[in-house]
Amino acid sequence: MRMSWLPQGHLEAFLNLLEPYGTVHGPTVLENGVTALAPITSPDDLELKYRHTLIPPKKYLLPFRDPILTLNDGCYRPAPPVAPNLVLFGLHRCDLQAISYLDRVFLGDDPDPNYAGRRERLTLVGLSCEPDDFCYCDPAQPAAVDLFLDQAENGFLVTPHSPRGEKIMSEGTGLFLSSDHLPSLLVPLAPPPTPQDPELRFSDNPLWEEYARICLSCGACSACCPTCYCFDVREYPSLDHGGNRLREWDNCLFKKHGEVAGGDFRRSRLDRLRYRFLHKYCGFSPLQGVTSCVGCGRCAKACPVGIDLRNVLEVTYRGAEPATTRDQATGTGEVS
């Protein structure tokens, strides 16, 4: 099989090739030391060997605060998103799988106009990665991607995965050489979790109690999760008799998430942790039975107290000893 080879030296020309499809954003290290997806102006800005970004690409599709309606003269009108064409360069497979999952949630039977408006202006260029201690993934899961780059020494093997990807490659014929190399296959360090039995959230695994005892409810796990999409809807009347309705990231670790008029569905921290497990590993209808964990490892890495929900699965399914809270010295030191 003949493959398309992009020599390292052609990367700048390749980025130029992407420009007509939108502003190019890619993995870079911000001034504060945090690895993030941000605008890229030259290959020197790129951090090609990054582990993962602190905040996943969902920030482009579901911004932290997103106006959805404006109120003027007593009339509500949709607030269409300001969505410029955008190329996300260098997304790892887990993040591409996460976008594929979000597509199922937001572009299903009743597409969300704000999500759809942003999604159709997005071009996705994937990049192979090296797994770390926190991540695990299933390369076979569906991923949303136009072009995928497998990193090798001195260059990349490029494969198109969509008509747009084919088009980009046809526009840059001079950039690509023919190659006999085959893309290296990912070897995840841990097997990915399969969809779980929802009843598992009621298991008497002692780890549940321990995690509920130490969970700070800071919300980092969910904020950093590429598939956590819960939002709260709020309306703010303005001084001129108008107003704005917006949605903002919500988080099932917060008390207010389960509160309704007259009650609270999830009163204890344990209930809230179990709810997160239920959504992540068991799925809700209509995505019941679909695990939305793509194995990026961000939650375990961002947790100040070392909670790793995978341990709940491992203990129950493999009969292993309950894992202890991770030593605070490990894994929390880096920001990348």
């Binding site: 993030a36 602190l54 932290f64 800071c218 919300g219 980092a220 988080n251």
Partner: peptide, 8 residues
């Protein structure tokens, strides 16, 4: 932390 993380 919620807004802090979201601001990267």
């Amino acid at each position: 932390c919620m807004e802090c993380r979201s601001r990267e």
